[in-house]
Design a protein around this nucleic acid. Structure first.
Length: 278
DNA sequence: AAGTGCCACAACCGCCCGGAT
DNA sequence: CATCCGGGCGGTTGTGGCACT
C-alpha cells in the first residue's frame, strides 16, 4: 500500500506557529469544528499541513489545556502510570486533566526520567514497556484504546458537518467535579465543553511564551464578543450555517477566519458533501 | 558582552489503526 | 479482500531561553 503524503510539501509553512496562524485556526475550529483536518487549513486560510493544525489545536489552542509546572501529585501520577502502562502517553495524559500527551511525554523525558531513572518500571520489568523496541507493540488493544477514548478527559471529537459538528471534552470518571473550572453544555446536536481557566494557572512560573499570552488574549476577546463563547453550540447543522451566515458569525470582518481579507466559507466543500441545492 | 552548553518545550515525522469504499 | 484515507500515537528533532564561564 502506498500512502499519500499527508500534505503537499510545497508551499506549506513549518516551524513555530505565529499568533496570526493561531488566531485563524482557533477562530475556524471554534466556529466550524474540524470536519476534516486535511482540508481544514485550506478553508481556514492556513498554509499548514492538516496534521500540523491538528497538533497545534490539540496540544495548545483547545480549551482545557492546563499550562505551567506540574504539581507533585501530577508527577506522581505520571510516574505511577508510566510504571504500569509504559510509554502510552495518551493513556497517561487521559488521567491528568488538562495535560496533553505531548506535554506529559516532554515532561517525562526532560525531568521525570532522570529523577526516577534509578527505579526500573514495573512495566519494563514485566515486559510491558517494550513499546520502544517493537513498534507493533506500541499500541494498546482495541479494548484498551476504547477505554482510553472514553476516559480521555479532553477528548476532542468533531464529526463531519452532517451529522452536526461535535466538539466535546468528554467527562472522565477521573476528572474532578470542579464545576467552577469547567463548563459544558449539551444540546441535541452539539456538545461543547471547556474550561476557561485563565485564573487557574496558579503555578505557571516557567517560561511564559508569547503564545501563552496571546492565547489568553484570544479567549478573552472571544468571550467578550460572545458572552457564551465556549458554551455556544458551534453549528447545529449545515442549514443553520447557510440560512443566515451573517447572523451567526460572531466575528468582525477582520477577525473571521479568512485569507487576504476574503472570508472563506467551506460552502463548496459542504456542497460536494451533501449534494445540496442551494 | 560574547560564547557555550544545557534544558524545556513546541513541532515534525513516520508508523499504525480503524473505517470507508 | 484489498486499498485508500483520516486521524492518533510515540519517537525524535529543532529552537529559544537561560545560566554559566
Amino acid at each position: 500500500m502506498v500512502r499519500t503524503p499527508c500534505c503537499d510539501k510545497t508551499g506549506l509553512r513549518k516551524g513555530t506557529w505565529t499568533p496570526e496562524e493561531d488566531r485563524k485556526l482557533m477562530a475556524y475550529v471554534t466556529r466550524y469544528g474540524c470536519w476534516n483536518w486535511r482540508q481544514l487549513p485550506k478553508f481556514a486560510g492556513l498554509a499548514r499541513c492538516g496534521k500540523s493544525c491538528r497538533l497545534r489545536w490539540m496540544n495548545y489552542l483547545r480549551p482545557n489545556i492546563k499550562r505551567g509546572s506540574y504539581s507533585k501529585e501530577e508527577e506522581e501520577t505520571i510516574v505511577r502510570l508510566h510504571d504500569s502502562l509504559g510509554n502510552r502517553w495518551s493513556a497517561i495524559a487521559a488521567q491528568l486533566p488538562g495535560r496533553t500527551d505531548n506535554e506529559v511525554k516532554n515532561h517525562w523525558h526532560t525531568t521525570l526520567k532522570k529523577r526516577f531513572k534509578h527505579k526500573p518500571s514495573a512495566a519494563a520489568k514485566d515486559g510491558k514497556d517494550n513499546s520502544s523496541q517493537d513498534p507493533k507493540l506500541r499500541r494498546g488493544t482495541s479494548r484498551e484504546k476504547e477505554e482510553t477514548k472514553l476516559n480521555d478527559v479532553d477528548h476532542l471529537l468533531i464529526s463531519s458537518p452532517n451529522p452536526p459538528l461535535i466538539l466535546e471534552s468528554s467527562l472522565s470518571s477521573q476528572q474532578p467535579a470542579s464545576g467552577d473550572q469547567n463548563s459544558s453544555i449539551t444540546t441535541d446536536n452539539t456538545v461543547v465543553s471547556s474550561k476557561l481557566d485563565s485564573g487557574s494557572d496558579d503555578n505557571s512560573t516557567t517560561t511564559n511564551t508569547n503564545t501563552d499570552i496571546h492565547t489568553d488574549t484570544l479567549l478573552e476577546a472571544y468571550e467578550a464578543e460572545s458572552s457564551n463563547f465556549w458554551t455556544e453550540p458551534f453549528l447545529s447543522d449545515i442549514n443553520y450555517m447557510w440560512s443566515d451566515v451573517s447572523s451567526v458569525v460572531p466575528y468582525e470582518a477582520d477577525q473571521f477566519p479568512l485569507l487576504d481579507g476574503e472570508i472563506l466559507y467551506p460552502f463548496d466543500f459542504y456542497d460536494q458533501l451533501q449534494g445540496l441545492d442551494l
